[in-house]
Amino acid sequence: MDNHIENQITQLSRLLPGSRGLVRSSALQGSMRRRLQDLGLVEGTLVRCLHQGPSGDPMAYDIRGAVIALRKEDAQHILIEREARPWQ
């Protein structure tokens, strides 16, 4: 398998339900940056996308065992490294 494709860096908002990624960096500012860090979304955190809302936005993510809903607007500022899927 080509790891370069699988381990690509992408926006958290692009993570599809069921897939996971490691948080690499956050371009969020101020209070939202701190808020998400307080929820455990710091560099190196493994995040799983769970499901989307009826209108596709916001999305629900598993962050350290808690389910947190984030808007695309905010999630796109967080860069993640998409996890390679074992079956691909």
Binding site: M32, R35, L36, V67, A69, D74
Partner: peptide, 11 residues
């Protein structure tokens, strides 16, 4: 503009 939003969905 709408500010950011983080909502916990509890068990």
């Amino acid at each position: 503009i709408p500010s950011s939003f983080a909502l916990e969905l509890p068990p």
